[in-house]
Nucleic acid binder design. Structure first.
Length: 317
DNA sequence: AAACGTTCCAACCGCTCTATT
DNA sequence: GAATAGAGCGGTTGGAACGTT
């Protein structure tokens, strides 16, 4: 089956979203929830196809999205999970709840892939790697990446205040997301934004809150337009942002039991991965992986590395 | 200052999966 | 079980921003 016919309709607008469109979309979703995307364009009058509306919400407007530079920890998580799972961006994103799959995918394609290629190239030049097997030999090169990143960690950290110097309108959705965090956190279902359906609040929240959001969005627009001549003035990540991130991460640090009920931070993809890994008797238990992913103290990395030394990447790639 | 090349990422495309009838 | 619609996922691209000459 092809793409939805709505996307072929004449009159469907394409290209970057405007602040006005964002306001319309956010206010609609605030009222009705992020579902039934088919009805969004007709109900809101937006000249966008339903798919475009969903992507805009999922990738930029929904609460809790973190934008800007990836931390060394996030880089490590992405690199390691990519070596384990391949290009399953949704699964990888489920371990970085504030990052979207699209964001991770872009970051991988524009930064990490090059980095790894460079490292592999250097390793090949040293004659360390047999070139017959094109698959990534995860432990060697990931270990090199870890070392390299450790050395770069301080640089990245000190560079954080200058992150996101390239600022287009879309980057102001960072501010929108931050504003919407109040909405999310006040919701009775305070969930991580890892999965859309779990992060939305219900449609029957009171109207005052809705108008507050619109007010806040309008404020962002005003600020955005005032800053036209001052591109790149996005506020640096605050301590609150880091606290929020940490609170998200700490929510899932307990090894999961197979309870049969999926908690907000345990998307189905993670279960897929667990099932997949569990099927291989020589694969590490996923809780160990999770613990490592969510714990900067990397003593467990060694254990994980030992466990996966004979199995990583071969049945997965 | 202008021209050109490169980088980056928001958005789109096409396919697959899932739910519904 | 088949057909259809809606939603999700991963790959790709267009164009703005940035860097270099």
């Amino acid at each position: 089956m092809g793409r939805p016919p709505c996307c072929d309709n004449i009159g469907i607008k394409k290209g970057p979203w405007t602040p006005e469109e964002d306001i319309v979309l956010v206010s609609y979703i605030r009222e009705h929830g992020p579902r039934n995307w088919r009805s969004v364009p007709t109900s809101t009058g937006l000249m966008r196809c339903s798919k475009s509306c969903r992507l805009r919400w999922t990738n930029y407007l929904r609460p809790g999205i973190k934008r800007g530079n990836f931390t060394p920890h996030e880089e490590r998580v992405i690199i390691h999970l990519q070596s384990l799972l391949g290009n399953r961006w949704v699964a990888i994103a489920s371990y970085l709840p504030q990052r979207t799959d699209n964001d991770i995918k872009n970051y991988w394609n524009t930064h990490l892939k090059k980095k790894i290629n460079n490292i592999q190239g250097a390793a090949d030049a040293d004659g360390k790697k047999p070139s017959s097997d094109p698959r990534p030999v995860c432990h060697d090169y990931v270990s090199q990446i870890y070392k390299m990143m450790e050395s770069r960690k301080q640089d990245l950290t000190t560079a954080l205040p200058n992150y996101h110097q390239k600022s287009r309108y879309a980057s102001s959705s960072e501010n929108i997301s931050r504003l919407l965090q109040g909405w999310m956190q006040s919701s009775p279902t305070v969930n991580a934004p890892g999965k859309l359906k779990e992060s939305c609040s219900t449609a029957d929240d009171d109207d005052d809150e809705n108008s507050n959001i619109i007010t806040a969005l309008t404020a962002v627009l005003t600020e955005n337009s005032q800053a036209e001549g001052d591109r790149g003035s996005c506020a640096p990540m605050t301590h609150d942002d880091f606290d929020l991130l940490h609170s998200f991460e700490s929510m899932d640090t307990v090894p999961r039991e197979n309870t049969g009920t999926e908690t907000p931070f345990q998307p189905a993809e993670a279960d897929d991965a667990e099932a997949h890994l569990g099927a291989e008797s020589d694969q590490p238990p996923l809780f160990l992986l999770e613990n490592w992913l969510l714990d900067e103290a990397s003593a467990q990395v060694d254990e994980l590395m030992k466990l996966t030394a004979d199995s990583c990447s071969y049945s997965i790639f």
